[in-house]
């Protein structure tokens, strides 16, 4: 093997490695994007969840929190917030609920996906518990009130007066007989 071949081989190796690295980087963008969203509040993703230390509410500020329920695609459930808006003081823990009813004649499973706007507010909305943490199953014609417990951080920027929290309900009922339901099991035939 002469010097040129060696040189070529080393270069190819480096470049192929670079290519593979970039292929990996493409996939690494997925978690990187989540981190990026958490920092910037991009897309209104809520990442603050779980128990929170109780603190005194800031009664000098009233934040209007708006709730929206959206059905995705062919999702036939009735789905709406019990109240359209509530007024909340920052630091105050508040309970809310969404109403859901399965009008069909079969058992269905749903997953609610939350989103917040303005996206700058997302990182200050803390969800202690939420029906969106789990999948929700309803038997035929069953109704349910699905609870949500949240706190707005006192550090919420002063120019934000209204926060809108939307839930989109996705039908994730397995097409085949219900065995184990995982989020990843969604089956959807194209058109």
């Amino acid at each position: 093997m002469d010097a040129l071949q060696r040189k070529n081989r080393r270069l190819i190796l480096q470049l192929v490695l670079g290519g593979l690295l970039m292929f990996g980087f493409g996939f690494a963008l997925v978690p990187l994007y989540d981190v990026f969203c958490r920092i910037t509040g991009l897309n209104g993703k809520i990442t603050n969840t779980g128990p929170v230390a109780v603190e005194e509410a800031d009664s000098s500020r009233d934040i209007r929190v708006q709730f929206i329920g959206v059905n995705n695609e062919a999702m036939p459930w009735e789905f709406r917030p019990l109240l359209n808006t509530v007024s909340v003081n920052p630091g105050e823990m508040r309970q809310m609920a969404f109403f859901a009813r399965n009008p069909t004649a079969r058992r269905m499973v749903a997953q609610a996906i939350p989103s917040v706007t303005p996206s700058e507010a997302a990182q200050y909305l803390h969800k202690v518990s939420c029906f969106c943490f789990d999948q929700q199953a309803l038997e035929a014609d069953e109704r349910m009130e699905m609870p949500l417990l949240f706190v707005i951080d006192k550090k919420l920027p002063p120019d934000i007066h209204t926060i809108t929290l939307s839930y989109t309900l996705f039908d994730i009922t397995p097409v085949l007989p219900v065995a184990q339901i995982k989020t990843a099991d969604i089956q959807r035939s194209p058109l």
Partner: peptide, 18 residues
Amino acid sequence: INIVLHGKAGTAMQAFGA
């Protein structure tokens, strides 16, 4: 009626009941 009201899962057929 059922298909028109509730759509058909896995297709573009929406639930027109709402």
